[in-house]
């Protein structure tokens, strides 16, 4: 039943977009990164540096213009139900009830109806939404929608989960609750997680490794292990030190971004 966590390898990955106006936008410089099975990697970097682009390549939605990405040793060429994705804007199917949303991937996996409804209900309870099974997504708040999206991806039990600012739009309390839930799933089920966030604090709280990207076109600036035991405490001195370290790196990049922008160099 339990899926084995997979490693993710990124080799000289490059991405250049051709815009509709015929311009070329370089979103990623050659990026290389090795993620061991079961690692929780947080990706931080200035806005527009290519974090979503990188994640979308890893999830199989985009084909890179150079280099390659592998999951479990296999090249990533298309989306895969074993590589789950949590989107910033929830991406729930509005025509399905909450429980049918959660059961969607289970149906694709060929699980019988009674079984998949039972499993979906369990995952809904895990995110505290057991009573909302029959509601439509439009009847839920933003935080509740993201909880359904989490239940939906947990339910398919993928060995890798990609998350693009999943908690970015949530209030502080819901965010905290879901961070706990995510850590628990990660620790209990040994999944590989790549998590994009704007919050340095969130990155340090969750990840065992933080990758800071440079301003666009993104490449890896630093790759920092976070050697703190879970559960982590924001107010601890070691936590604060990591925070300072990451912020210093980001500030350098921010300075560059603003410098570029004021000189108009960013548009290439």
């Amino acid at each position: 039943m339990e899926t084995q966590a997979k490693p993710v390898e990124i080799r000289d990955l490059e991405m250049v977009f051709n815009t509709s106006r015929g311009e070329q936008v370089r979103a990623l410089q050659p990026v290389s990164l090795e993620i061991a099975p079961g690692e929780f990697v947080a990706l931080v970097g200035p806005s527009g540096c290519g974090k979503s682009t990188l994640l979308n390549i890893l999830a199989g939605f985009l084909t890179p213009t150079g280099g390659c990405a592998l999951a479990g040793g296999e090249p990533i060429t298309r989306p895969d139900i074993d590589h789950g994705m949590v989107f910033q804007d929830y991406a729930l199917f509005p025509w399905l009830s909450v429980i049918d949303n959660v059961a969607f991937g289970l149906e694709r996996k060929g699980i019988a109806k009674a079984d998949r409804l039972k499993q979906a209900q369990n995952y809904l309870e895990l995110v505290g939404l057991g009573e909302f099974a029959q509601k439509r997504p439009s009847e839920l708040s933003g935080g509740m929608k993201q909880r359904v999206a989490l239940a939906r991806v947990f339910a398919t039990d993928p060995s890798i989960i990609f998350m693009d600012e999943p908690f970015g739009a949530l209030d502080a309390l819901t965010r905290r609750f879901l961070q706990h839930q995510l850590l628990e799933i990660w620790q209990r089920h040994k999944k590989t997680i790549v998590f994009v966030t704007h919050s340095v604090q969130e990155a340090i709280y969750l990840a065992n490794r933080i990758v800071v990207m440079t301003a666009r076109p993104g490449r890896i600036k630093i790759d920092q292990e976070i050697e703190l035991s879970y559960p982590r405490v924001y107010t601890e001195a070691k936590f604060r030190n990591y925070e300072k370290l990451i912020y210093d790196q980001l500030d350098e990049e921010l300075a560059k971004t603003f410098d570029f922008e004021s000189k108009g160099v960013v548009r290439d």
Binding site: A59, G60, F61, R78, P79, D80, I81, H83, G84, M85, F87, D89, A91, L92, F93, F104, G105, R108, K109, R152, T156
Partner: peptide, 19 residues
Amino acid sequence: VDPVLIRAGQVLGCDDGAT
């Protein structure tokens, strides 16, 4: 159709165009 719903469908196991 919201492209993100198409992506969600793909990553939740709609492997072929017909599904």
